[in-house]
Design a protein around this nucleic acid. Structure first.
Length: 866
RNA sequence: GCGGGCGUGGCGGAACCGGUAGACGCGCUGGAUUUAGGUUCCAGUGACGCAAGUCGUGGGGGUUCGAGUCCCUCCGCCCGCACCA
């Protein structure tokens, strides 16, 4: 009897062996074809969680598989190490952010090593290290020179609790993504990366990212928000405008509805609104009302459509006698288009809500096919569907598309005061990326403010601008502002007194290029070696959470383009293949007082419908709640360390791959883990039994088990390539079942030994420690026992075994299965037809009727139609 | 509101192009072995039926020799965006 597989003893031993052999160290000089697999690097929060385990296991399977397939694989790991939690820890626990961060990195690195991941640790980087961020500062200056950096005053999302600016992406339902505080709007001067320069390209190139999930491409497309429209210059009556202004540019995507216009409206911050408010105190009051309302994003979301008539009058571009009022309206955004619109209430819900409040009326100009143009009216619900133009003079009868084209070409051709009245314009929702953060624990922005010279870059030889260590967090705000020694420097240009920029960069900058740095992470003078970077990029397979579908991935795509512009890389797209994995979820538990209880403290009894839960210590009944993402706040977490300590890393890895498709959420259950653990032991038993078989015995080249084993290798190969790990797992189970049956039934010993050996190779990417142990037990490690399974090439599939000589076809009568028939693989349709019709079961089902038709789908199915 | 996705046993899920629905795992039932128990092995496990068989992939309709898969329609759930003109 074979002993149990002892993961606790074996796993560290094999990890040490891999490390000693430097198996996962990647050379940039290796001539083999390259494969770059990368998982999104973690924030060093303190401990790894099950989401990390799932993410890194998937990446590791790919890395180990591709290595076996003969690729020179790059599989690095690092730390997204700047950010607010470190400062929060500093404030709460009086520990320096640097100390806290590096302690966490050490703890998490140790945890990852225990998982047995095939990472090249020699390439590890931490973004908070000056050896990393000096290059980021260098690239900031490069981008500045290339015109990709601007400084502008902008309305920003201000988080009053964290005391910092947030990107639009960091505002969720009007609240700060970390603090949960209601976000306010503030005007601040900020540094921006001009991502909008690439808006069109970032949009267009989404089509070429074929190995990205459609969902992510769509989310990016919506975020970039490309729209085609018309910029129309409405003539203003100068006698009504504040300073004789005679033109107002508006942006519209619906120029076809121009004859349904009822009003124009500008944003409260629009220059025309400001000018008009100076002569009209009531209007000024309305505008400040809008601002007050506008401080909290939440209020904006709920606000009614409010407006104020400026008294300014505009003229319709197609009718000099048609005058339109100009309003200031709270729902018009200054940042989008021109900050001014024309309102067509019949075909835009916001405009309709607006006119219904102010009694301006609505004329429908698009009539749906099922409505009579003479009676079609719009009252409460705007019509934005398809139809024919009505009430629109020369546009009547046209389709929407034709009308858009007609309006555009007429107004383009018409010149007023030496300018065309209108021009076609592609607009984007995407805004420039504000990267300034009023925070200490981030990459310093390498600029110096000088009273005489303005804002001056730190000379490149003066980099890095290193964060000072001696800071305190006893007051709110940015400690860098209160650090005179660091802050006050002489101007690099005139030598006079200067002041460092004390804002630091958004941490999304740090993670926008780490994948490029990994290609040659220890270069001291430059961020990348262009040739080396180009030899690895784009990342062949990037794996991470869907939560980064927009921000991180879009910023990285921008950053690659910017890096290319200044010469650090030679391509635009960072990630050729992207996979977004699902979350790890778990039941939630609460006690009678409503307090969350962690799974480790819960004892479960009963099954499916009648399950009940009790507290392990108090035996108090526990309420079983919904299955949710593992989170500290709901205490429904399972600690990877605990699982690895009880079952071993391989069991945890196997379970992570087995139950659910990788893109879907996986429910962590104790039963599931135990199932995985049992399978580990089962493999170990099969290997032990197979090793005891007499060697040299048997050898049937077409033994059924040989066929099964080789088919499984082919299928698993396919599944891993397609990241269908759950199916690969199921197939390995089937092979194990087949082997067990052959062992039981005294099957061909040579075939069994081969099948077991193949099984070990199939599990090697997933359960690498167990596989090594089995490999050695099977004596597969070659002369002198020197070769590890991690070094072995992927098994060659014997393709002749994949094709059977005889096949079994299901036989249907009228689409209902009645029998099976076994025929030679190359049997012709007529022969099969005759054989099928003579089957007893078929005759019975035909009830004496003659067959009308017999459909023979080669190698698939036979259907007799009665 | 706009955009997208998904509904298959008690549960997680398989089913590539329309071709044997329910692979594989979990759970459960019965039996065997061993044990203090976990373990291991064998058999069973969509529903109804003694059986032959009938029904069955959210509901209804359609296309087809044949539909979980394609089309129409309704219902339910989930995700993303949200005053973007």
């Amino acid at each position: 009897m074979v002993e149990r597989y002892n993961a606790k003893e074996a796993e560290p031993r094999w990890q040490a062996e891999w490390a000693a052999r430097e198996l996962f160290r990647t050379s940039n000089d290796d001539p083999r074809p390259r494969y770059y697999v990368l998982e999104m690097f973690p924030y060093p929060s303190g401990r790894i969680h099950m989401g990390h385990v799932r993410n890194y296991t998937m990446g590791d399977v790919v890395a180990r598989y591709k290595r076996a397939r003969g690729f020179n694989v790059l599989h690095p790991m690092g730390w997204d190490a700047f950010g607010m939690p470190a400062e929060n820890a500093a404030i709460q626990n009086n520990v320096h952010p640097k100390t806290w961060t590096y302690a966490n990195i050490d703890a998490m690195r140790a945890q990852l090593k225990v998982m047995g991941l095939s990472l090249d640790w020699s390439r590890e980087v931490a973004t908070c290290d000056p050896s990393y961020y000096r290059h980021q500062q260098r690239m900031f200056l490069d981008f500045l020179d290339a015109g990709l950096v601007t400084r502008k005053t902008a309305k920003v999302n201000w988080d009053p609790i964290d005391g910092t600016v947030l990107a639009n992406e960091q505002v969720i339902d009007g609240r700060g993504w970390r603090s949960g505080a209601a976000v306010e709007q503030r005007e601040l001067t900020q540094w921006f990366f001009k991502i909008t320069d690439y808006a069109a390209d970032l949009d267009a190139r989404l089509d070429t990212l074929e190995r990205w999930p459609d969902k992510v491409r769509l989310m990016q497309r919506n975020w970039i928000g490309r729209s085609e429209g018309l910029l129309i210059g409405f003539a203003l009556d100068p006698s009504t405008s504040p300073s004789g202004e005679d033109r107002l540019d508006i942006y519209t995507t619906r120029p076809d509805t121009l004859f349904g216009a009822r009003f124009l409206a500008v944003a409260p911050d629009h220059p025309l609104a400001k000018a008009a408010s100076e002569r009209d105190p009531a209007l000024a009051g309305f505008i400040s009302e809008c601002r007050r309302l506008g401080t909290a994003q939440e209020a904006i979301d709920r606000a009614d459509k409010l407006g104020f008539d400026t008294g300014i009058r505009a003229t319709h571009p197609f009718d000099p006698a048609w005058r339109l009022p100009v309003y200031v309206a709270n729902f018009v955004l200054l940042e989008y288009g021109t900050g001014a619109i024309f309102g067509c209430p019949a075909h835009d819900q916001r405009d309709l809500d607006f006119v219904n409040r102010y009694g301006l009326g609505a004329t429908p100009v698009v009539c749906p096919a099922d409505q009579d143009p003479d009676t079609f009216v719009v009252t409460d619900t705007a019509y934005d569907g398809d139809g024919r133009m009505i009430n629109s003079r020369f546009l009547d009868g046209m389709s929407i598309g034709e009308a858009k084209e007609e309006v555009a070409s007429r107004l383009e051709a018409e010149v007023r005061d030496g300018r065309p009245v209108a021009s076609r314009k592609v607009n984007f929702r995407l805004r420039d990326w504000g990267i300034s953060r009023q925070r200490y624990w981030g990459c310093p922005i390498p600029m110096i403010h000088c009273k005489r010279c303005g804002i001056v870059p730190v000379p490149r030889e003066g980099l890095p601008v290193v964060l000072p260590d001696d800071v305190s967090f006893d007051q709110p705000g940015n400690p860098l502002d209160r650090h005179p020694i660091w802050r006050d420097v002489s101007c690099p240009s005139c030598g006079g007194p200067g002041r460092r920029e004390t804002d630091t960069m958004d941490t999304f900058v740090d993670s926008s290029w780490y994948f490029a740095r990994f290609t040659d992470p220890h270069l001291a003078e430059v961020p990348t070696d262009r040739a080396v970077a180009d030899s690895w990029l784009g990342v062949d397979q990037y794996i991470g959470g869907i939560e980064h579908a927009i921000l991180h991935l879009l910023y990285s795509r921008f950053f690659m383009r910017a890096m290319r512009r200044v010469g650090w890389v030679g391509r635009d797209e960072p990630f050729d293949g992207l996979f977004t994995q699902g979350m790890v979820v778990h039941e939630t538990y609460r006690d009678a007082s409503g307090a969350w209880v962690q799974p480790a403290d819960v004892r479960l009894e009963g099954m499916s419908g009648g399950r009940r839960a009790f507290h392990v210590k108090t035996s108090e009944p526990i309420e079983i709640g919904p299955i949710e993402k593992m989170s500290k706040s709901k205490k429904n977490t399972v600690d990877p360390d605990d699982i690895i300590a009880s079952y071993g890393a391989d069991t945890a890895r196997w379970f992570m791959l087995s139950d659910s498709p990788p893109e879907r959420d996986v429910i962590w259950t104790e039963e599931g883990v135990q199932g995985a653990w049992r399978f580990v032991q089962r493999i170990w038993r099969l290997v032990g039994d197979a090793a005891e078989l007499p060697s040299g015995a048997g050898g049937d080249p077409v033994a059924p088990l040989r066929r099964t084993a080789h088919k499984t290798v082919a299928a698993v190969q396919d599944d891993i390539e397609g990241l269908r790990f759950n199916r690969a797992v199921a197939r390995i189970h089937e092979l194990a079942n087949a082997i067990a049956a052959e062992l039981q039934g005294g099957g061909d010993p040579a075939a069994i030994r081969e099948a077991v050996r193949l099984t070990v190779q199939l599990i090697a990417p997933m359960m690498p420690h167990l596989a090594e142990e089995c490999w050695r037990a099977l004596g597969a490690s070659g002369e002198g026992g020197t070769q590890l399974v991690a070094e072995a090439p992927w098994p060659e599939v014997d393709v002749t075994l994949l094709v059977e000589d005889v096949i079994t076809l299901p036989v249907q009568v009228n689409g209902r299965k009645r029998a099976d028939i076994t025929v030679p693989r190359d049997a012709d349709a007529l022969a099969i037809e005759a054989a099928v019709l003579s089957l007893e079961a078929v005759r019975r089902a035909m009830e004496g009727r003659p067959p009308r038709k017999v459909i023979v789908v080669p190698h698939r199915i036979v259907n007799v139609v009665a």
